[in-house]
C-alpha cells in the first residue's frame, strides 16, 4: 500500500515536470510579450532592454532552469500584467473555479446515478428511452452553445436567473448545469450498462433465491457493484470539469481560474499561465490518486502494488 503510494508519487513528479516543460515552451512560442507591454512606437533598443529586464533574452533552457529553481522555493514569478505574484493571483481565483467544478461533479454524479439506475430497472420504458436520447443529445452539444441558450431562455426571456457574474447561489445555477451536462450523460450511460449487467448476474439470482426484497438487492448489492465503473471514470470526469470551466467561465463571466487563464494567454502573461497549469495539474494528479485509493475501499478484489 505504502509502496504503491510512493511509486505513484514518483510518477506524479515526472508528469508534473513534463507538463511544466510543455507549458513553458509553448507559451513562449506563442509570441513576444514585450511587444504587448511596450507602446507601438517603441524602438528596437527599448524592446531589447525590456527583454533583458524580464530575463527573456536568455536561451529557453536557462530560463526553464531558473523557473524550476524558483518554483522549488515556492516562487512562481510575478505577473507581467498585474505586477503581482502569479501564485497568489492563481490562488485568489482557484476557489471560485473549484466551487463551480465540484458543484457540477456532485450534480452530475447524483443525477447520472439516479437516471442510470431508473433507466436500467425500467428498461425499454419511456423513461429509459428518454434517458438514452438525453444522454446522446447532452454529449453532442458544445458547452459554449448550451451556456448561451440557457442564458437566453432562463435569464433573458424568463428572468428567473441572472445572466452572469458571481454574487450569490442563484449565479451558480446556469454555469453548473452547463458544465454538468456532459458528465451527467456519461455517468448515466455507465451506470445504466453496469446496472443491467449486474442485475443479470448469477449472484443477483442467488440473492433472489434467498428471498431478499428486490429494493434491498438493487440498492445494496447491485448499486455497489455498479459504482465500481462509475468511480473508475470519476477521475476523468473531474479533469474534464476543471478543464471545462475555461469555456463556461468565459460564457458566464465567472471570476475563476479559467477566465484568468484565457486572459493571461491573450496577454502572454507567461508566469501566470505556467503557475495556473502547474497548480491545476498537481491538483488533478492527486485527485486521481485519491480516486484510485478509493477503489480499494469499495472493491475488496483490488490490491495495490
Amino acid at each position: 500500500m505504502l509502496r504503491y503510494f510512493f511509486s505513484r508519487l514518483r510518477l506524479a513528479v515526472i508528469t508534473i515536470l513534463g507538463v511544466s516543460l510543455i507549458v513553458f515552451v509553448t507559451s513562449r512560442m506563442s509570441g513576444d510579450v514585450t511587444l504587448l507591454l511596450l507602446p507601438q512606437d517603441a524602438s528596437e533598443a527599448d524592446i531589447k532592454a525590456m527583454q533583458h529586464e524580464l530575463g527573456l533574452d536568455a536561451p529557453y533552457y536557462v530560463q526553464y532552469y531558473k523557473f524550476l529553481r524558483n518554483v522549488a522555493d515556492g516562487d512562481f514569478g510575478e505577473s507581467l500584467r498585474y505586477r503581482e505574484p502569479a501564485f497568489s493571483l492563481i490562488m485568489s481565483r482557484l476557489p471560485a473555479t473549484l466551487e463551480l467544478a465540484f458543484s457540477a461533479f456532485i450534480l452530475s454524479t447524483i443525477v447520472g446515478l439516479l437516471m442510470g439506475i431508473v433507466s436500467a430497472r425500467m428498461r425499454s420504458s419511456w423513461i429509459d428511452y428518454f434517458s438514452r436520447i438525453f444522454s446522446i443529445t447532452a454529449q453532442s452539444m458544445p458547452s459554449f452553445w448550451v451556456g448561451i441558450m440557457l442564458i437566453l431562455v432562463f435569464a433573458v426571456e424568463l428572468h428567473w436567473l441572472p445572466t452572469s457574474g458571481a454574487q450569490g447561489v442563484e449565479y451558480l445555477v446556469l454555469p453548473v448545469v452547463t458544465l454538468a451536462l456532459v458528465p451527467i450523460a456519461s455517468t448515466l450511460r455507465i451506470t445504466r450498462s453496469a446496472m443491467l449487467q449486474t442485475l443479470d448476474a448469477d449472484y443477483v439470482k442467488f440473492l433472489r433465491v434467498k428471498g431478499l426484497r428486490e429494493q434491498f438487492i438493487v440498492w445494496k448489492h447491485a448499486l455497489r457493484n455498479a459504482l465500481v465503473p462509475v468511480i473508475a471514470i470519476s477521475g476523468l470526469t473531474l479533469g474534464f470539469l476543471i478543464g471545462g470551466t475555461v469555456i463556461v467561465e468565459s460564457v458566464f463571466a465567472w471570476p475563476g481560474l479559467g477566465n484568468l487563464m484565457v486572459e493571461s494567454i491573450f496577454t502572454r502573461d507567461y508566469p501566470v499561465i505556467q503557475a495556473g497549469v502547474l497548480v491545476t495539474s498537481i491538483f488533478l494528479i492527486f485527485l486521481n490518486l485519491a480516486v484510485d485509493l478509493l477503489f480499494g475501499v469499495i472493491d475488496p478484489r483490488v490490491r495495490f502494488g
Binding site: A201, D202, Y203, K205, F206, L207, V209, K210, H221, R224, N225, V228, I298, D299, P300, R301
Partner: peptide, 14 residues
Amino acid sequence: SMILQDPMVSLDPL
C-alpha cells in the same frame, strides 16, 4: 432454496 451452477459467480464479490 436453490444451489446454482457456478459457485464462483453465485456470491456478490463486494
